[in-house]
Every structure is written in C-alpha cells, then in structure tokens.
Design a protein around this nucleic acid. Structure first.
Lengths: 128, 128
DNA sequence: GTGGGTGCAAATACTTTGCAACCGA
DNA sequence: TCGGTTGCAAAGTATTTGCACCCAC
C-alpha cells in the first residue's frame, strides 16, 4: 500500500464521523464536509471513506440502501430499520459471546463478526 | 397487499433457488431462468425476488456487491468473503443462542437476527 | 372481463474511476 | 520534486419503474 499523506479533507471526514453516532451515509458526510470545503467532490468523500475503512479507522456498514459509516471500531452491534434504513447501536444486558459458537467445517480467515437485528424502528412504528 | 396470481416464471425462480445452496445473485437467477424462458427480463426477476422475500418464501442477503437470495428461510448464519463476495452457510458445534443477549433500551420490533462472519474464504487464500 | 404479471426500455440510486491540476513531505 | 490527493465528469454496477400487452382466475 502506498504511503499515506495528510489531507485536510480526510481529517474533516473523520472528525465528522467521530462526532456522530447515527452512522451517516456518504451523502450525509458529503453534505457536512461541503460546509468546510465547498468544492469537495462526492468522489473524494467515497475515496476517503473507503481508505479509512481499509486502514481500520472507521467501519463500513453494509445494509439495504447506501452504505453507512461508523467511527466506532470497537466490537458492537446494530439494529437496522427495514422501513427507513436507520441504523442504531444496540446495548446488551449481557454482551454476546461467540467463543462457544465458532463455525465447524470452515477453513477461511474470519476478520469480523457482524450481529445485526433488523425490523421496524420506534419512529416508523409511530408513523404507521 | 394485492391478491397473488400464479406465474410460471416465479415458480421457476423459486425452484432454482431451492436447488441451490450457494446464494445466487439476481444475475445468476436470470441466467438460469432464461434457459426456460428465453424472453424473461431482468426486471421480472428482480420483481419476483422482491415479492418472494416480502412474503417470506425466500430470504434476501444484503452484502457487499449485489444482493443474494436464499430459499432456506430457517434461522442460519453466513460467512461472506470480502475478496470474492461468495456467501457460505456456517455450521456450528453449538448453535448461537441470543436469548440472553436481547438488547436493552430498544423499543422497536425485531423481525430477524443476522449473524454474519466475514473475512477471506479458502479459495481466495489459495489464490493469493 | 379484471387485475395482476411480463417484457422492454428508460430511469434511478449508489459507487467507482480516469485524468489533469494540486498540495504535502 | 515526487507521489499521494483532489475536483470534475463520465462511466459502471445494481436495482427500480412506467407502460402497453398478456395471461390466470
């Protein structure tokens, strides 16, 4: 991988994500960063989001609709609303423990475990 | 929801998925169904895949790259390869039990629990 | 006959990429 | 200066949709 050079745009993107806990999409990041860098392009936002998630500084959340990004790289799990697409962090009384549930008959490399609950969020229930 | 009418194309799509355990994409379904219905359109395939997953006859797997579809609607969990995008079913020595890990501070409706391991599959390890 | 289903094509949504100019080390 | 980064626009990938015709009930 090429040597990483400093960029003010990338800093701004990362700072924005650190300050948010609602898992913004690339468009939401773009809308914000544009306040500070009015000429930044969506391509640059996507490039930096990919780069940051490749080097592990942020986490990319693949779900229905556009990808979302999370500056919290600690293990934690999400609820995704099938209705509005929002993604919330879940808190557990007892943290999920996957140590006893390692898969058999599998010889690849596991890099990440994703636990995602989906359904309908409170806001969407009220709307309907 | 409107009354469902019978369609041979939809049957063919579902039969195909039942016979496969590799979680085909819409394109793969299209390629197969075209053997029997040479004039079927990709739009029809997408429409039927959405419809089947809405009524719970198949399951849609959202991952990096194109969505994948699974006729196995029983609870089970996947491994997704970050490299080639393949999705495999995982077998566990001890089935994951989420009864003790229900989320607190959450008041929406949970419809489904997805547990997905991702990393690099055996085939991609060998290639590199 | 009625209304859902289909094929086709165009449109949309999201993301990536080529390229020349730019900027940080 | 060198090579990574940016802005811009175009292209690419995945999916949805409008519409006229067709087929199941």
């Amino acid at each position: 991988m090429a040597a990483l050079k400093h960029s003010r745009q990338r800093d701004c993107i990362k700072e924005f994500l650190i300050g948010r806990h609602d898992h913004p999409t690339a468009d939401m990041v773009y809308a914000h960063v544009r306040e500070e860098f009015p000429h930044i392009s969506l391509g640059t936002v996507y490039r930096n989001l990919s780069l940051l998630s490749e080097i592990g500084e942020i986490r990319k959340i693949t779900c229905n609709g556009p990808d979302r990004f999370d500056a919290n790289t600690m293990p934690h799990y999400h609820f995704t609303c099938n209705c509005c697409g929002s993604v919330e962090d879940l808190e557990f009384e007892q943290a999920p423990d996957f140590s006893g549930v390692l898969p058999m008959n599998f010889s690849g490399i596991i890099e990440q475990i994703n636990l995602d609950f989906n359904g309908t969020c409170e806001a969407c229930i009220k709307k309907s």
